[in-house]
Simulated assay, not measured.
Amino acid sequence: MSQVPDSGVAPKNTHYLLVALLAAGGLLVGVAAYFVSRLVPDMGDDDLAVTQSILTNLGIGFFSAAVLFLLEPKFRRAVKADVTDTVTDTVRTATEGLKDEVREAVQEDFEDRFATLADRINARYDAKLKEQSDLVSDLSSDFTHERVSKLFEEAATLRALHENALLVEADDEIGNLRVRFSWHHPHGTPWTDPSTLRPPGDDWNEVHIAAWPSTGDWWASPEVAWTPNMTFEDVALELAVGLNSSGSRGLAERIQWGPILQRFETAVKAAIESRMKTEGAPPLEGGLSEFLDHENTWYLTNRGLYCPTHNSAQLLADFEEIPDQPPWAGRREWFFIASRAQNLRASALDRR
């Protein structure tokens, strides 16, 4: 016996048969309500009215059920399609919204992380710049061994000073007395560190301050190694005694250290800021060797001679002979600083 394929025809016929039965049942029950008095003649008026009402409502119920069963597939398809479309739209909208939210969240997180990193880097820059600024700020009024040592260490790291030394004028008269601040190994330091068998490092360095009189004689130029247990007053007095002993300057001819330390502070600040390319710093090339602040402000480095107030810059190589005097420079200051540049050039050539 062959089987009928499951094509959905049987369920459909059953559905229509059920609709027909419900409709017929409703019709019969509704019609029967009008024939109750004939079928049951002895029924009272009240009972008859109640029975007819019940049968009528029952017939209407069957007929309504038939109508609902007839239209139910259409309702189901319509509702299903509407629900499907609604769900699809909802899912699509939710998915797109979720994608946008995730994308925005990732972008915001990336931007926040990047901004935070940039802020941290900038903070480190600012901290380093402030640290260097604090080393020089008000140095002349707080001239201690600790601050000066740290300043020389930082200047050495930046190679801001030529040979870790700086020469400034001590008096208003050019060349009368100069003071040299330097940072190097103590005299008599061995060529090799016994503990490492290597040349001594910067940790061996100490601050030295020397006074150079106009005679230029090395034996008349006292130098003091500034150790941590000494105050600057000790250093200043020892230099004065040394100058007095050599006959270069009497003890009563007191050295005015205020202007000297102010010149040192100005020069080192310019040298460090120039190496850091700080805005407003003088555009110096090379390590600063000497500073002269007279009629004009001069910076002598191992690369050239600079006078920023007149935008003047001359290479050290140009000082084989003293160049012509600039029209804005004083005669004495020009020949003095130009001679210093010539000597620095000659010293550099001798070391080659």
Score class of each variant (00 low, 15 high):
Ala81Gly: 12
Phe181Cys: 01
Lys277Arg: 12
His208Gln: 10
Thr278Gln: 09
Glu333Ser: 13
Met43Trp: 10
Phe335Asp: 10
Ser214Cys: 08
Trp183Arg: 01
Leu39Met: 07
Leu167Trp: 00
Arg331Asn: 08
Gly175Glu: 06
Arg254Cys: 06
Val4Cys: 12
Arg331Trp: 03
Asp193Thr: 07
Ser245Asn: 13
Asp100Ser: 15
Gly250Asp: 03
Ala10Asp: 02
Ala281Gln: 13
Pro308Val: 15
Gly216Met: 08
Pro282Tyr: 11
Tyr16Ile: 04
Leu21Pro: 05
Ala24Met: 14
Phe143Asn: 09
Phe291Met: 00
Tyr125Ser: 13
Asp193Ser: 05
Ser195Asp: 10
Ala127Asp: 11
Thr196Phe: 11
Leu167Lys: 01
Asp47Phe: 03
Arg178Trp: 08
Glu223Thr: 15
Glu111Val: 15
Thr231Asp: 10
Arg103Leu: 11
Gly44Gln: 12
Asn311Pro: 04
Ala271Tyr: 02
Val29Lys: 00
Val31Asp: 04
Ser64Glu: 00
Pro308Cys: 15
Arg345Ile: 00
Arg263Asn: 07
Leu288Tyr: 07
Leu27Met: 14
Val207Asp: 01
Asp293Phe: 02
Pro186His: 14
Ala240Thr: 12
Phe152Gly: 03
Ala211Met: 09
Phe319Asp: 02
Leu251Arg: 03
Ala105Cys: 14
Val40Asp: 01
Pro323Ser: 13
Thr93Ile: 02
Asp138Thr: 02
Phe114Cys: 05
Ser246Arg: 11
Leu55Thr: 00
Ala313Arg: 00
Lys277Ser: 13
Ser221Cys: 08
Thr88Pro: 00
Arg159Lys: 14
Glu253Ala: 14
Val235Asn: 11
Lys150Asn: 07
Leu28Arg: 05
Ala338Trp: 00
Phe319Cys: 04
Pro194Arg: 09
Glu108Met: 13
Glu108Val: 13
Asn302His: 12
Val79Tyr: 08
Gln3Gly: 05
Ala329Pro: 02
Asp45Ala: 15
Ala81Trp: 05
Thr116Ala: 15
Phe114Lys: 14
Val235Cys: 08
Asp202Gln: 13
Thr297Asp: 02
Leu21Ile: 15
Ala32Leu: 06
Pro326Lys: 14
Trp218Glu: 04
Glu233Pro: 06
Val40Tyr: 02
